[in-house]
Amino acid sequence: MRHGKKINHLGRTASHRKAMLSNMASSLILHKRLSTTVAKAKALRKYVEPLLTKSKNDTTHSRRTVFAYLQNKESVKELFDEVSSKIAGRPGGYTRILKTGYRLGDNAEMCVIELVDYNEDMLTSAAAATTGAKKTRRRSSGKKKDEASATETKAAATESKDEAKDAE
């Protein structure tokens, strides 16, 4: 049973795990995409998403806090200058994990973790999909459609009655 096990230790000591996640987060910020195992990607997502959220508020304190995690000046500069402006309107979910198959040597499940706003292929397909009718996200849209169609038919019936009276 895994009672109380909040984090995946990834078979490493605490210092090794901290250093590995810091390096992976820096690489993800600098290169926008990273190929790794699924377990490491899920651990990295928990590590890097709060840093991305903190980068939206560009203050000296938030820069120092992020630097304490990343330990890389170039990645901190990239994060606060370019990445934060792209993710400013997004409320969360800054990374995407795409599974790519299994590694030949040990059959570990591999994936690509990437920053969502930097995948041009997905952005162009999403833009093409949104050019159509605007869709709203609702859970129980069946009731709304039935009520809307009922009110439309009532309105159409009253209009036809009014037109008939005007014709007389």
Score class of each variant (00 low, 15 high):
residue 79 L to K: 00
residue 50 P to A: 03
residue 77 K to D: 12
residue 151 T to L: 15
residue 10 L to F: 12
residue 81 D to V: 12
residue 166 D to S: 13
residue 104 L to N: 01
residue 102 Y to W: 06
residue 104 L to C: 00
residue 29 I to E: 03
residue 102 Y to D: 02
residue 168 E to P: 08
residue 104 L to Q: 04
residue 72 N to V: 11
residue 159 E to V: 13
residue 117 D to Y: 07
residue 112 V to H: 01
residue 76 V to D: 03
residue 68 A to P: 01
residue 156 A to N: 10
residue 133 A to M: 12
residue 94 Y to M: 06
residue 131 T to P: 03
residue 125 S to E: 12
residue 13 T to N: 11
residue 73 K to G: 13
residue 95 T to L: 07
residue 104 L to Y: 03
residue 136 T to H: 06
residue 159 E to I: 13
residue 35 S to H: 09
residue 45 R to V: 06
residue 73 K to H: 11
residue 42 K to G: 00
residue 104 L to E: 01
residue 18 K to R: 11
residue 103 R to P: 03
residue 104 L to K: 10
residue 43 A to N: 02
residue 62 S to A: 14
residue 12 R to M: 14
residue 18 K to G: 05
residue 137 R to E: 07
residue 155 A to L: 15
residue 110 M to R: 01
residue 147 E to G: 13
residue 119 N to W: 02
residue 138 R to W: 10
residue 115 L to P: 00
residue 35 S to G: 06
residue 164 A to S: 14
residue 113 I to E: 04
residue 89 G to R: 06
residue 166 D to Q: 13
residue 2 R to D: 14
residue 145 K to I: 13
residue 42 K to W: 04
residue 57 N to D: 14
residue 55 S to I: 07
residue 115 L to W: 03
residue 70 L to M: 09
residue 58 D to R: 05
residue 159 E to K: 14
residue 26 S to R: 00
residue 7 I to A: 14
